Simulated scan of single mutants.
Amino acid sequence: MKIKYFTLFLFSLLIISCSTTIATVKKEYRILPVSQLKPHWNFDSKEWFLEKDTLTGIGGYMHWGVIESKKNLPENYEITFKANMTKGSLFEIMLNIDKEKYIRTYLYQIEQNMVIGRGVYHKKSDEYDKRGGKSLFTKPIELQNNKWYTVKIKVQNNQLLFSVDNNTILECALEKNNLSQQGKVGLITNGEVKITDFVIKNL
């Protein structure tokens, strides 16, 4: 009986490893110490690291700290997590990274806004016009350093929903706004951010 369960476990791992998406139909992806980062993400270990159940990212004004998944997001997905911007003014979730284009979903403390925008990201350049991009939708939100926020991002049937603490919500249509409809996921900070309970679910 034990051999049977072990075989099923190995088979499920094989299915997950062969999948082209970071979350499969039968399994959601979680950032935890047991999952480790290197098998699933591209990053500089001086910029992003995992301690116990907390993922920490460190960047600066001239060089943003970036971590990017190795696999694509599913077509329809939900990302949930808790975030604390301990330093700096910007924390961004990069959605549907396709070559150098992606969807910007971010919290911007200077303007006290949450934002959906059209972004560009050149991995080997810190030039101003080679990162970030145009804001398309904004909503005022009170943002502070050293405060935890619950973030939820949902993409389903080409509709994007971005919410903070379940009460401040931004929505838009991907195709209508010429936004990337497939690709990887990433995280960016220009200061320091701490993240817990990070889950990607295939819808």
Rank of each mutant, 00 (worst) to 15 (best):
M1D: 13
K2N: 14
K4V: 08
L10N: 11
L13D: 12
L13T: 00
L14K: 04
I15H: 03
I15S: 10
I15A: 15
I16T: 01
T20E: 15
T21K: 09
A23Y: 04
A23S: 14
T24D: 11
T24N: 09
Y29S: 06
P33Q: 10
V34F: 14
L37E: 04
L37S: 12
P39A: 04
H40R: 07
F43V: 09
F43C: 14
W48L: 09
E51Y: 07
D53M: 05
T54P: 00
T56N: 06
G59T: 02
G60L: 00
G60Y: 07
M62K: 07
H63T: 12
H63N: 12
G65W: 00
G65V: 01
I67F: 02
E68C: 05
E68T: 05
E68G: 00
K70F: 03
K71Y: 12
N72L: 12
N72G: 10
P74Y: 15
E75T: 08
N76A: 07
Y77M: 11
I79Y: 04
N84F: 04
K87C: 03
G88A: 05
G88K: 01
S89T: 09
F91T: 10
N96P: 01
N96D: 14
I97G: 03
K99Y: 07
K101L: 08
Y102Q: 15
I103Q: 01
Q109D: 11
I110C: 08
I110D: 11
E111G: 12
Q112M: 07
N113A: 13
M114C: 02
G117L: 02
G117H: 06
R118C: 14
V120E: 08
Y121C: 07
H122I: 13
K124W: 12
K124Y: 03
S125L: 08
D126S: 13
E127I: 00
Y128K: 05
Y128L: 06
D129K: 04
K130Q: 12
K130G: 09
R131E: 05
K134T: 12
K134Q: 14
L136N: 03
F137L: 09
K139W: 00
K139V: 00
I141D: 02
I141Y: 03
L143P: 06
N145E: 06
N145C: 08
N145S: 11
N146I: 00
K147P: 04
Y149I: 00
T150C: 04
K152D: 07
I153Q: 05
K154A: 09
K154H: 08
V155S: 10
Q156M: 06
N157E: 15
N158S: 13
Q159T: 03
S163E: 13
V164N: 05
T168E: 11
T168D: 15
E171Q: 15
A173L: 10
L174R: 07
E175L: 12
K176H: 10
S180V: 09
Q181G: 06
Q182S: 14
G183F: 04
G183L: 14
K184W: 02
K184H: 07
V185K: 09
L187T: 05
T189V: 09
G191A: 08
I200V: 14
I200W: 05
N202W: 05
